[in-house]
Write a protein that binds this DNA or RNA. Structure first.
Lengths: 205, 205
DNA sequence: TGGAATCAGTGACTATTGTCACAACTACAA
DNA sequence: TTGTAGTTGTGACAATAGTCACTGATTCCA
């Protein structure tokens, strides 16, 4: 509950109180699917602890769009809810997480009543948009080896460990490529001393 | 001026009046650069007539992000202005255009005073975000020939003509690839009867 | 203690895209 | 007319990535 207070601290006290009254928190175990493509959105999540992965999928291939870290929200939910459109993306808990759920009808009301809250959403839109831009630039301008290494380093930073428990298949799927390709690249990166592969984890150097 | 009224018609009368008082319009001839990467943003443009192209650039390579059509705004400007950050993208007028310029300091005020206007910006954010998602999916999942054809068809729809005056080099640059590749692909698409190349334009069939 | 499943490694091959070098053709201005 | 710049066509080649077919490991239950 202290976490929540801290996260909302930039908002006005009246709004904070309303949010606390109208919202609920939910514990989400690792690997739970939170949102799937085509689903209608009824709540807007704000992550309090843990890590949520948002990705796009097309014919078995996936592409990681972004992670939602604590204090962040899923702007795709917000967007989808505004227009009452189904979601275009998937969301899965990467770690055991706790999320604060804001009911969309209340949020719509709050945006009128407490213009402050708009800044919060604008910030999030910005953040995500910038991340997508970065992703696009990577896709277009970087070779796969750079993308793989970047992905692992990012993930290492996010999870706060240098020892990543992740399979080649999963890396491949998050980057939208094939498993064998990842195997090859990881061996190359290992030879170049960027990382070290152990039996059941990858160590970032 | 009638165009402006129509575009703003969803907003409250008081807001419309303020906008008309505080904003200016500008005529932008085709090919004028409107915004470059790293530049600070002082006005938020809303396109009244014409067509603006927004793209990202990296070491000579470009990638088309989206077109701003009449009634639409450049949300990247808005984003940049909110955080007082420099722009991450470029914008160029594709056709002779007229744009309505909202001063950023006024806009900040309006978002507090007239919560209505937030919907307008949220809509735009949404639109752009979806477009970026589409772009990413194309990049990741489609081959270049599909992308080239899609690009030309999109452009044909936007400009309202089946006869596109555009060089191979420009197509290549908008898709982030090389000129020779576009030449090859256009020949293939021509053989497949998707289009026809004439001496100084491309006809979409 | 056997499968069964998942994971990782590898060679061979193909497909796609990017790069280079060069030729040929406008179009337009000096 | 003659440059000069911009455009397009093309063949050859290289680099990158994706696919296929298998082989061994490892894990994990039941």
């Amino acid at each position: 509950m202290n976490d929540i207070k801290r996260i909302l601290s930039k908002l006005s006290p009246a709004l904070i109180q309303e949010i606390e009254e109208e919202s609920s928190t939910m514990d989400v175990p690792s690997n739970t699917e939170i949102l799937r493509e085509g689903q209608y959105v009824k709540v807007i999540p704000i992550v309090i602890t843990g890590l949520i992965k948002v990705f796009s999928r097309y014919e078995e291939k996936e592409l990681l769009l972004y992670y939602i870290k604590p204090e962040e929200s899923c702007i795709m939910s917000f967007a989808a809810s505004l227009n009452n459109e189904p979601s275009k993306v998937f969301a899965v808990a990467e770690e055991d997480s706790t999320v604060l759920l804001l009911p969309v009808d209340k949020v719509a009301k709050w945006t009128k009543q407490f213009p402050d809250i708009n800044n919060l959403f604008y910030q999030q839109y910005n953040l995500r948009y910038s991340e997508l831009l970065t992703t696009i630039n990577h896709l277009l301008f970087n070779k796969l080896d750079v993308r793989v290494l970047g992905f692992l380093q990012e993930r290492s930073k996010l999870t706060g460990t240098k020892e990543l428990k992740i399979s080649h298949r999963q890396i491949a799927s998050e980057l939208g490529t094939a498993r064998e390709v990842v195997s090859r690249i990881l061996k190359k990166l290992e030879a170049e001393n960027h990382l070290k592969q152990h039996s059941n984890y990858i160590e970032i150097l």
